[in-house]
Every structure is written in structure tokens, then in C-alpha cells.
Write a protein that binds this DNA or RNA. Structure first.
Lengths: 125, 125
DNA sequence: GATCAATTGTTAGGCAGCTGACAAGATTGT
DNA sequence: ACAATCTTGTCAGCTGCCTAACAATTGATC
């Protein structure tokens, strides 16, 4: 994933943020942390990088002065349109020719496992 | 994984290094990078942390002066014996009650996928 | 034997993740 | 209305991962 994005000088999380903003319109950082399941502090630094690169704008929300709305810039959409989708690329390479039933089984096993781990974590606190 | 190890003030890679040294005896850093599939530079910093904590010793190899042999210290083995195995814990929680056949399918699908990705990566260079 | 190439480990610098502490703004309770 | 609390974003400091450049040592070649 990172190797696909390296030529564009983007980290994978930067890519996810761009994807969100390119497809879902402007969002405040709170929403983005929720959707990407990332800590506020982590997003803060990533946002800083994207703003510095001029790909994203950080605007004050006029309703809640604490919040900042992230919006992709013209340069950002320009760049976004030239980037190949790394997830698409990876999944096609990784799962080419796999029996669809087996793939479905694997997905079910894994999603159940993550669910069990999440439950276990929330129980222990 | 990290949350299990946090009380012991260990990162997960630090745990892997201790495991190697506790079970496979002294190894030089080159071997460890190969076994853990980690870069030389990464291991160098991790080794530094473990040495600073007094859990691991870094000895000069008397055959090849470039190499350094890592050996777990008494304090290291002491600590090692008190740490629960986080992988054991995670797998039992994650895969409790899963149909063994489904689990086997999932493992096969995933290992084939990683193999395909590795092949793809080596082809493109 | 001297030089050039390869190997080993370290350091510097960057990204991404976390926790913990903080300031500023919003909300709630009395 | 004002104080206490919650929320949002940032900063500092840590781990862990990477690449790139470097020094030291070994090995190979001539």
C-alpha cells in the first residue's frame, strides 16, 4: 500500500483522508476520526501534513467554534484524480483465482474474530 | 497485544526479540532481523531500548568484528518468566468456538494471499 | 598486498500510531 | 448567570516502522 502511494508522496492514512473528503464532501475532524477509527491527535498531525501540502483546507465551523471543517482543495482533487486505488490493486492481486466460497468463509471468520476481540476489550475496562 | 504488554513496559517487537532470545539462545542482530523480518535500523533502536533496560546484552562476536551477539540477561529471563503469552491469549479469544474447518480455510486463503503479494512485489523490481 | 565491493550495525530524519496534558469553546446544573 | 463538566483540537513525548547515508570490518580480485 505504501509502496503504491510513495510516488505521490502520500502515507496510507493521508490517502484515506483524501478519499473521505473527495467522496463524502467536507467533514469536521471529529467525523473523520470516527470514520477512520483514528485518535484525535493522530488525525491532527496528518491534517497538518495535508494542509502544508495544500491538498486540504482547514476551515472554522461557524456553528461550533471548536470544530474545524476539512475540505479538499483544487490541488487535492487534481491529485486525487491521478492516484490509482491501492486497495483495489491489492485485493485483485491477493485474491485472484480464489474460490469465492472460501473467500467468504475467510471474511466471516475474520470479522467474527475482530468482533470477539472488540467485545473482550470493552468487557475488560 | 500492546495493551497486554503495557503493564510490563514492552512494545510488541521488544516482546518478539525477548521470545527469540529466551527460546533460541544468543543470536546476532543479522539473524534476528531475518527471523523477525524487520529492518536492520529498526532492530538497532529496539536493541538499544532493551539494552538500556538491562534485559539484553550486546556482545562483540569474536569471529566477525562487525557483528554483535544479543543475549538475554538474568533480569531478562526473570521478566520473561512473568509475562503471559499475548499471542496465545489473543488467538484463544479471537477464534474460540470457530469451526476448525473454517479456520483452516481462512488460514489457507490468507497464506496464499500473502504469497501472491510477495511474488507480485518481487516481480515488480 | 592493496584496492574495491559487500556486509553489519548505527544514526538521522520522516510517517503514523498511541497516551496524557492542555486551552478554548460549548453544555449542563444549580 | 455562573461554575463545573464535556468536547474538540493541538502539543509533547513515546514506540515502531521505514529509507538513506555513514563507519567499520570482512571478503574478493587483481
Amino acid at each position: 500500500m505504501d509502496s503504491v502511494l510513495r510516488p505521490y508522496d502520500l502515507g496510507h492514512t493521508q490517502w484515506y483522508v483524501l478519499q473521505l473528503l473527495a467522496t463524502n464532501g467536507p467533514l469536521n475532524q471529529r467525523e473523520v476520526t470516527r470514520l477512520l477509527e483514528v485518535e484525535r491527535a493522530t488525525l491532527s498531525t496528518i491534517t497538518g501534513v495535508l494542509v502544508r501540502k495544500g491538498l486540504v483546507e482547514q476551515l472554522a465551523d461557524d456553528v461550533d467554534q471548536r470544530q474545524k471543517v476539512l475540505r479538499i482543495t483544487a490541488a487535492g482533487t487534481e491529485l486525487w484524480s491521478t492516484i490509482p486505488d491501492p486497495i483495489e490493486l491489492i485485493t485483485t492481486v491477493a485474491f485472484a483465482g480464489v474460490d469465492p466460497a472460501d473467500l467468504a468463509t475467510a471474511q466471516r471468520v475474520l470479522s467474527e474474530a475482530t468482533q470477539r476481540l472488540l467485545n473482550h476489550r470493552t468487557e475488560n475496562r
